[in-house]
Deep mutational scan, measured.
Amino acid sequence: DRYEFNINGVHFTIDDAEEELIKLIEELLKRGARAEEIEEVIRRWER
């Protein structure tokens, strides 16, 4: 599934997002994580 979200006006799209990654990102968003922090999480996840 495609997952899309915005952080401070920056648009992100993840194709074939796994449910666990989506939950992790949503938790980070609730905590007010910065875009750079979430980008790093996504990079690590994709390795």
Results as ranks from 00 to 15, higher is better:
residue 4 E to R: 01
residue 37 E to D: 10
residue 32 G to L: 04
residue 32 G to V: 04
residue 20 E to H: 06
residue 10 V to T: 08
residue 26 E to K: 13
residue 15 D to A: 07
residue 15 D to N: 09
residue 15 D to V: 14
residue 17 A to T: 06
residue 29 L to M: 10
residue 19 E to L: 09
residue 26 E to P: 00
residue 6 N to K: 04
residue 28 L to Y: 11
residue 40 E to H: 08
residue 35 A to H: 10
residue 31 R to A: 10
residue 21 L to C: 03
residue 31 R to F: 10
residue 17 A to Y: 04
residue 41 V to I: 10
residue 47 R to I: 11
residue 15 D to L: 09
residue 25 I to D: 00
residue 9 G to N: 04
residue 18 E to H: 09
residue 12 F to T: 02
residue 4 E to V: 02
residue 16 D to T: 14
residue 3 Y to P: 03
residue 4 E to P: 00
residue 16 D to H: 13
residue 14 I to G: 01
residue 1 D to F: 05
residue 22 I to F: 03
residue 21 L to F: 05
residue 12 F to C: 03
residue 19 E to C: 12
residue 24 L to P: 00
residue 34 R to T: 15
residue 23 K to S: 11
residue 39 E to P: 02
residue 32 G to D: 11
residue 24 L to A: 12
residue 37 E to C: 05
residue 21 L to I: 08
residue 21 L to W: 03
residue 16 D to L: 11
residue 40 E to F: 06
residue 8 N to W: 02
residue 13 T to R: 06
residue 33 A to M: 05
residue 42 I to G: 00
residue 42 I to R: 02
residue 30 K to V: 12
residue 21 L to T: 02
residue 27 E to L: 10
residue 39 E to W: 14
residue 11 H to E: 13
residue 28 L to N: 07
residue 12 F to R: 01
residue 21 L to G: 00
residue 43 R to F: 06
residue 43 R to D: 11
residue 20 E to T: 10
residue 7 I to Q: 04
residue 41 V to Q: 07
residue 32 G to Y: 05
residue 20 E to C: 09
residue 20 E to Q: 07
residue 33 A to R: 04
residue 39 E to Q: 11
residue 9 G to M: 02
residue 34 R to G: 15
residue 18 E to C: 06
residue 26 E to T: 06
residue 7 I to W: 04
residue 22 I to M: 04
residue 10 V to K: 07
residue 4 E to K: 01
residue 26 E to Q: 12
residue 41 V to L: 14
residue 46 E to T: 08
residue 35 A to E: 10
residue 32 G to W: 04
residue 40 E to G: 07
residue 29 L to W: 04
residue 26 E to R: 06
residue 9 G to F: 01
residue 27 E to R: 10
residue 6 N to C: 06
residue 26 E to L: 11
residue 12 F to N: 01
residue 21 L to N: 00
residue 17 A to R: 04
residue 27 E to W: 08
residue 10 V to P: 00
residue 25 I to E: 00
residue 14 I to R: 00
residue 35 A to G: 05
residue 38 I to T: 00
residue 35 A to K: 09
residue 5 F to E: 01
residue 1 D to Y: 03
residue 32 G to K: 09
residue 40 E to Q: 10
residue 6 N to W: 15
residue 18 E to V: 07
residue 37 E to S: 06
